[in-house]
Each structure stands twice: as C-alpha cells, then as structure tokens.
C-alpha cells in the first residue's frame, strides 16, 4: 500500500529525515516510536502533504502512485487520513457541516453521489457511539473550545466517519487519560480490516497495550534504526532510548 524508499527531507536546510524507508501493507498496524525531534511528525506531515518541507531525495509510492506529486486534498480523497497532533479550531463551522463537506468531496472524487442527509445522520449516530462522543460536541464548531481529550476524540471520530485506507495517528495518545486512551484504541481496533492500514506514532508503550501493532519501528535521528514486533516496545520502555545509541 505504502512504500517509502530512502526518503530525505529537510526544512530550512536542516535535514530531518535522513534516508528513511518503510513498507506498509493492507491489514497491518505499524507503530513508530522514538524520542522527541527525531522526525516522527515530519514523516506524518510528508505523507499527508504538508508543503513546508523540502523532499531532497527518495520516493513515496502509495497504491502504485507517486504520492509526492499529489495535492493534500487528493491524497485525502484517495484514502489517506492524518489524525493531527494539534488539531486546529475552525470557528463557526460545526463538526457536522465540516464532516459532511469533507465526506461529499471525497465521494465526488470517487465518482459517487453526495450522501443523503438520512444516511449521513445514521452514520453519525453509529460512529458517535463507537467513540463515545456526544451530540453536544458534534454540534459545536470544529475543535473550538475543546479540551485536549475532546480534540483527540474528535480526530478519531472523523477517522471513523471517513473510513480511510491508510490512517496515520500522530501522537493521538499524548495528553489522554486512560479512559480516553481506551476509546481511541477501540476506535482503531473496530475500524481495522484486512483492506486498511494504520501508522500509529507514539511516545509510550501504554497505547500499544490496547492497539496491538504488527510492527514496531524505532525512528532515531531521521532514520528507522530498529524494527521488530510488539516486544520491541516493551524493550524500549524498559531500557529507554539511550539504549539505541549503542
């Protein structure tokens, strides 16, 4: 599904990713761990199409297409979803209105008719239950005045509504209490199918107690320095990132 080869990325002439490679297949959950400032969020932004970075070399192929040539909204329509680390506020635009607009844009791209009001609201109800989000929240403006936890839940809610093929969750677990964390995990686990894939970026092993990854990658100084199974996360938790230096 996603194939990244020897990717080098810089911002303001400072190299952040220094030859990163990653293969993600449908049906897989990949966890990316690593200390602060090693390029985890940069990787997420690059896949989603944020244009503040320079791609110096390497390639990113998504479903056989050169992802780097696609506009961010086209990537989204083609099934890529980014759960933001810091979701922004959009005053005056209700979550309902926002999601319906997004969903219909995506449907248009895929040659589908706009979703009917009835179908849309039925879907809202179903997914609201899944992520335990209240109507009070979905009637409010996007992220406006939301607590940190509410913002993250809203990201998972949007993911549930849009049903992406490749979802990247950028530190969705940071700042969450254990209950919210369980809800996020429940969201991911229930959306998981053999046709979609997840990249979960996290600092902590505890999220991986609830979302069981197929692969754990350690990103360190712009490169993936170690790849393993779930047990790698435990090892990291125990030994700390210092251990990688050796």
């Amino acid at each position: 599904m996603l194939s990244i080869k020897n990717l080098k990325v810089s911002i303001n002439e400072k190299e952040i990713l220094k030859g990163l490679s990653l293969e993600v297949n449908a049906g897989e959950i990949h966890a990316i761990m690593g200390p602060n400032g090693t390029g985890k969020s940069t990787l997420a932004s690059i896949i989603a199409g944020r244009d503040i970075f320079n791609v110096d070399s390497g390639e990113v192929i998504y479903k056989g297409k050169n992802l780097l040539e696609m506009a961010p909204e086209v990537r989204a329509c083609d099934g890529i979803f980014l759960g933001f680390q810091y979701p922004v506020e959009i005053p005056g635009v209700s979550i309902t209105n926002f999601l319906r607009t997004a969903m219909n844009e995506q449907r248009k791209y895929r040659g589908l008719e706009p979703i009917t009001a009835k179908e849309f609201f039925a879907k809202m109800e179903e997914k609201k239950k899944l992520v335990e989000i209240h109507s009070k929240l979905t009637n409010r403006s996007v992220n406006e005045g939301f607590s940190g936890g509410e913002k993250k839940k809203n990201e998972i809610f949007q993911m549930a509504m849009l049903e992406p093929e490749l979802a990247i969750l950028d530190e969705t677990d940071s700042g969450l209490d254990i209950d919210a964390l369980k809800i996020v995990a429940k969201g991911v686990n229930s959306l998981r199918t053999e046709n979609n894939a997840f990249i979960v970026i996290t600092h902590y092993q505890r999220l991986l107690d609830y979302i069981v990854p197929d692969f754990v990658h350690v990103l360190y100084e712009g490169k993936i320095v170690k790849t393993g199974g779930k047990e790698l996360a435990f090892e990291l938790e125990e030994k700390g990132y210092e251990w990688l230096k050796n």
Binding site: R75, F84, E105, L162
Partner: peptide, 18 residues
C-alpha cells in the same frame, strides 16, 4: 486551518468558503 481542511479532502477554494 487550510491544511486541516485539505487533509479531510476539501480543496483550498472550498476550504476558504467553509
């Protein structure tokens, strides 16, 4: 804000409208 909308599939013109 624009990128957030783009990432959900909404192109820049529509995002501004929204």
């Amino acid at each position: 804000q624009l990128f957030y909308c783009n990432q959900r599939g909404i192109d820049p013109e529509n995002a501004i409208g929204l």
